[in-house]
Amino acid sequence: MNAIIANHLFKSFEKGKIKALEDISFEVKQAELFGLIGPDGAGKTTLFRILATLLLAESGDSSVDGLDVKKDYKAIRKRVGYMPGKFSLYQDLSVEENLNFFAHVFGTTIEQNYHLIKDIYQQLEPFKTRKAGKLSGGMKQKLALCCALIHEPSVLFLDEPTTGVDPVSRKEFWEMLKYLKSEGITILVSTPYMDEASLCDRVALMQKGKILDIDTPVGIIEKYPKKIWSIHASNMYALLQVARAFPNTHTCFGFGESHHLTLNHDAEDYDAFCQYVQEHYKEPFQIQEITATIEDCFMALS
């Protein structure tokens, strides 16, 4: 059975002026780690709110754990864990008080589901009496995850849990998600960071309220239609200018240390490109064929 089903969801705001979701359909299997990848304004939060029974879609239907989000919203609320994007806990309550409070909210205790949050809680334990407002970004998100897990939900909704969190904590956070998945929890997680896509079982690439593609991260990369090269030289800006000036350049985007290049006729244009750069850039440069990243795919699709 699919844990989450979204069927042709539409939603707009301000009397239709802002189209937040346009025809969103996808399914998430039981115990799957499913990522919604997309920039701000893609509609991720709206989608979460509809699935978490906080908003009603204008049309289309959806279900969570086999329950209809509109009709059975009360039943759904008992079995999902939800961590909204701007969720920041009660700043003036301590770590323990926050946890205890949310345990009460779901009619349980910390002890009852300790096995689920054990790993995370042990990291938080030294700061048990610290106010949530005084925790670092990473710690806050871990605590928030704990709070969302306290009632052993069958489905977990995490809206941008790693935004604004430093890389170390981000990595740890994803490790926790992997563990929770192994415990049989279905996880729907959103992120604006393309590099986090590879950590999901399957992803939906979203932009401006639409889904661009749904597949496994590997599947998405394999579908990338073109050959792609990375180019590098000492003056990256000049190289970018030259590469873009080449008539048969399809795209050339900065990727930090190197630029990613695609050519109109792929390998056919390769030699001409190298020659063109040699002529115009004059200094040595490196070029090598690479596999596309999720970000390349996203740009190709959008």
Partner: peptide
């Protein structure tokens, strides 16, 4: 933070250009 990849590249293009 949170910008779509294409716009982000345009942003860095601006930075490269200024630099």
């Amino acid at each position: 933070g949170g910008v779509d990849p294409v716009t982000r590249r345009q942003f860095w293009d601006l930075i490269y250009e200024a630099s």
